[in-house]
């Protein structure tokens, strides 16, 4: 086992374990904490894949913004008594079964991938020569300019929507 493989084994193992912890903890605050750790590991995986910018985004947006939002909501709702109740629904064995079967299916699919498209121009060296952020930026602002603008619109709509929905009605 080479060093990268060992690293991947650690990161991968941690990600799986942390995911399981996230979906099984009774207290949602604990889940959020485990998720924070999970996101850090995923960011590390991105780094491992030479995607520094995405790793940074992962930490800033997911860990910094979305998880904090979750925490806010949990605090806001003040769900003390929830902790004493059952954590799974009645149909949970179905959920588990489907999850396992789905995983098996996906693994089977991996063996079926036989078409490898031609390699693109963004080799590791190419990215390294100008830096990841610049590479992403160039692609984003040229080829994907329109989707980028649309993404900004989606965010705008989300802001307005969230405010409208969560605001207390003033009669």
């Amino acid at each position: 086992m080479t060093l990268p493989q060992a690293f991947f084994a650690y990161i991968g193992g941690m990600i799986v374990v942390l995911s399981l912890l996230v979906v099984t903890r009774k207290n949602p605050v604990h889940s959020v904490m485990w998720m924070l750790l999970l996101f850090v590991h995923i960011a590390a995986l991105y780094l491992f894949l030479n995607a520094e910018f995405l790793a940074a985004i992962q930490i800033i947006v997911y860990a910094g913004a979305i998880l904090v939002l979750f925490l806010f909501v949990i605090m806001l709702l003040n769900l003390r008594k929830e902790e004493t109740e059952k954590r799974f629904q009645r149909q949970w064995p179905f959920g588990a079964g489907i999850g396992v079967v789905l995983a098996v299916f996906f693994v089977l699919i991996v063996g079926k991938i036989d078409v490898i498209p031609p390699l693109g121009q963004y080799s590791i060296d190419a990215i390294r020569s100008e830096g990841h952020i610049m590479t992403v930026g160039k692609v984003l602002y040229t080829e994907f300019l329109l989707p980028f603008e649309i993404a900004s619109l989606i965010l705008l709509v989300a802001i307005i929507g969230a405010v409208v929905l969560a605001k207390k009605r003033v009669e």
């Binding site: 799986v16 399981l20 998720m35 979305i66 949990i74 588990a96 396992v100 996906f106």
Partner: peptide
């Protein structure tokens, strides 16, 4: 695939709506 399946499991099995949301994020 494994993480996705765990997410599906969480989505289908948990009662707490916030955890269900987190499963979607997963």
């Amino acid at each position: 695939a494994i993480v996705f399946s765990i997410g599906v499991f969480g989505f289908l099995a948990r009662r707490n709506l916030i955890i269900v949301f987190m499963s979607v994020e997963l």
